[in-house]
Every structure is written in structure tokens, then in C-alpha cells.
């Protein structure tokens, strides 16, 4: 019997975007990282090209993040007090990129010096997010953009209510930005348009449709990302940005990952559960189209990277296990 495999001919393609800059390109990174370029849905190698595998980032902070789960603080141990040491540790843990989150308590000097130290301590392309309050974000990201001039950082977070200053800073110093919208296809698209309207090339905008953690709304993020990716492949230009999500942050907010005491016995071993929580959140989002996932635990990084490797393995005919 002949079976004709249905192959979709997608007219669209995800945009290729490069993070970081080497010395030749005006930065100091040992290599750059390129994402995007897909011409099919995630890992459907039989149908199209997936030129770049999804990328795994590790989130570090400019100062000890006391609200993080004790499990994370224990794992990273001393380095959480020192962004440079943490950056090094994260690089050794296998991160492809780093996300540095600034703190509400940071002064401009704290922020720029954290960025400087991290850039000096490691070779990876860097994403820098403000603490998440509009005024403070703007206050810190502008000097950070100047400090990191030439490095093609990703600056964040651009949101509908606060994107202009960050985009302007990116324009001034040739960086990228992260465009974040709350789990909605049209809002995601709209913010990309608005940012692009300010003059920032589409090659410098990552799309962050936001996600919920496993058990906390992941299905929304998952479906919105699937829809965005379908729209991109169908040729809708303003949805063709590679997608960045932060499953690490989301998963470790969930009680299941965050705490070990006073939880139901049937939740099982805390450490294993927490890692599973972060891993499944990340891998499902990768399956729905994420091009960059930012994680927090080094063990998760290993597991997610292994999964990506397995999914990128382009076996002509799927391997059949002998019975």
C-alpha cells in the first residue's frame, strides 16, 4: 500500500536573528548565536529546514535573588553573590546564552558594572532585563545599552506600556530587544509592529509571547506560540520573529518547584519534581515553537539540551526499536 505523506508547503519563514558580536563585529564575544530561520513547524525535518536548533539560556542576577527557591540558591551556592562568578559557572553549566536580570535595588553604577563584569567573565551573548518596573527598567537599561555598545545585547523587557525608551536605547547602540506581550497572538503582533515603527529593524526584535508554568497556564502560552508559528509560516510577516520565553522563571514561581516543605506527600521528591517541572515547561514550549528558552537550574539545562539534540537528530527514516 502506498501512503502519501502530507507535506505542507509553507510560504513563510521565521526570521534569522543573531545575538552577540565578536571582536570583528565590534563586540567581545567569542562567537555569536543565531536563531530562527525555520521553514516548518518544530522539528518536522521531513517538511522543511530547521537551520538553527533552539537555544538554551541561563538566568543570572545582578545581586543575590533572595526570592528564588532555596533549591536554586543552594545549587548555585556562592556564585549568586557575584555576577561574574555566576556567569562563569553558567557558561560551564552549558548555557548557550546568558540572561542577566537587574534588581530594583541596583543603581545605574551597579547595573553597568554587573553587565561589564559578566561580559568580561564569559564569552556568551548576553540578554539584559530590567527589574520589571517601567521607570526602573528605563533608568537602568539606557546606561546598560551604552555600557554594552557593540555587543548586540538583547535588552528587555519591552511591553506595550513601556517599550519606547528601551527601543530607543537599542537604536542608539545597535542592540536587540525582547518584545513581551501577555499570551495573545494579536497583542504579540501589535507590539512588534509598534517597535518596528520606531525604526528598529525586524532583525533586532525577539518575540516573547509569555508563558505560564506547567499547571499554571502553560496551555495558553503553548497554544499562542503554536498559533504565532503557524501564522509566521503562513507568511504573516509581523509574526516571523524568533520566540524567546522564560520557562525557568515561570516554573520556579510554581509552588511545585519552589518549595519542599508542607506540600502533599504524593508530589514526591522535591528535587526531582522541581527539575521535572522546569524541564517539561521548557521542552513543551520548544515543541510549540520557542527558539530561545531561559532556564534557572543547571540540571534542567542538561536535560533540555539533550532533548533538543535528540529532536534535531535528522534520521532519514525513524529508528525502529527491535521488539
Amino acid at each position: 500500500m502506498t501512503v502519501e505523506i502530507p507535506v505542507e508547503k509553507w510560504p513563510g519563514q521565521v526570521r534569522e536573528i543573531t545575538l552577540g558580536a565578536t571582536a570583528d563585529e565590534g563586540g567581545t564575544r567569542s562567537h555569536t548565536v543565531t536563531v530562527g530561520g525555520e521553514t516548518t513547524l518544530p522539528f518536522l525535518h521531513f517538511e522543511g529546514e530547521i537551520p538553527h536548533p533552539p537555544v538554551v539560556g541561563i538566568e543570572i542576577a545582578s545581586r543575590r535573588p533572595d526570592d528564588w527557591s532555596p533549591l536554586l540558591l543552594e545549587t548555585w551556592s556562592d556564585v549568586v553573590d557575584d555576577p561574574a562568578a555566576w556567569a562563569k559557572a553558567a557558561e560551564e553549566a552549558g548555557a548557550d546564552i546568558l540572561l542577566l536580570t537587574l534588581s530594583l535595588e541596583d543603581s545605574v553604577d551597579d547595573a553597568t558594572s554587573a553587565v561589564r563584569q559578566v561580559l568580561e567573565a564569559c564569552d556568551l551573548p548576553l540578554i539584559v532585563f530590567g527589574p520589571g518596573q517601567a521607570d526602573k527598567d528605563n533608568e537602568l537599561i539606557v546606561p546598560v545599552a551604552e555600557e554594552g555598545a557593540g555587543e548586540r545585547l538583547v535588552l528587555g523587557v519591552c511591553e506595550e506600556k513601556n517599550y519606547r525608551t528601551i527601543v530607543a536605547a537599542a537604536l542608539a547602540h545597535d542592540h536587540l530587544v525582547n518584545s513581551r506581550t501577555p499570551m495573545d497572538v494579536n497583542l504579540a503582533k501589535q507590539l512588534i509592529i509598534l517597535i518596528h515603527d520606531m525604526g528598529l529593524p525586524l532583525e533586532q526584535i525577539l518575540m516573547d509571547p509569555t508563558t505560564g508554568a506547567l499547571g499554571y497556564g502553560i496551555e495558553y502560552g503553548y497554544s499562542v506560540m503554536e498559533r504565532l508559528r503557524l501564522a509566521a509560516l503562513q507568511g504573516d510577516s509581523m509574526t516571523q520573529q524568533p520566540m524567546l520565553v522564560t520557562p525557568g522563571e515561570e516554573a520556579w514561581k510554581a509552588k511545585e518547584a519552589k518549595v519542599g516543605d508542607d506540600v502533599p506527600a504524593e508530589w514526591g521528591d522535591w528535587g526531582e519534581r522541581a527539575i521535572n517541572w522546569e524541564t517539561l515547561t521548557a521542552t513543551s514550549l520548544i515543541q510549540s515553537g520557542a527558539d530561545l528558552v531561559v532556564l534557572r537550574h543547571p540540571e534542567t539545562v542538561q536535560r533540555v539540551q539533550k532533548t533538543i539534540d535528540a529532536l534535531m537528530a535528522e534520521a532519514g527514516e525513524p529508528e525502529l526499536v527491535a521488539a
Partner: peptide, 12 residues
């Protein structure tokens, strides 16, 4: 120029 430019571009 960059410092003011940012403010001109972001609308402040």
C-alpha cells in the same frame, strides 16, 4: 546626542 536622542525617540 544619544542621551537626548533616546528621549526624543521614546517620546519623553
Amino acid at each position: 546626542l544619544r542621551s537626548w536622542g533616546i528621549q526624543l525617540v521614546d517620546g519623553r
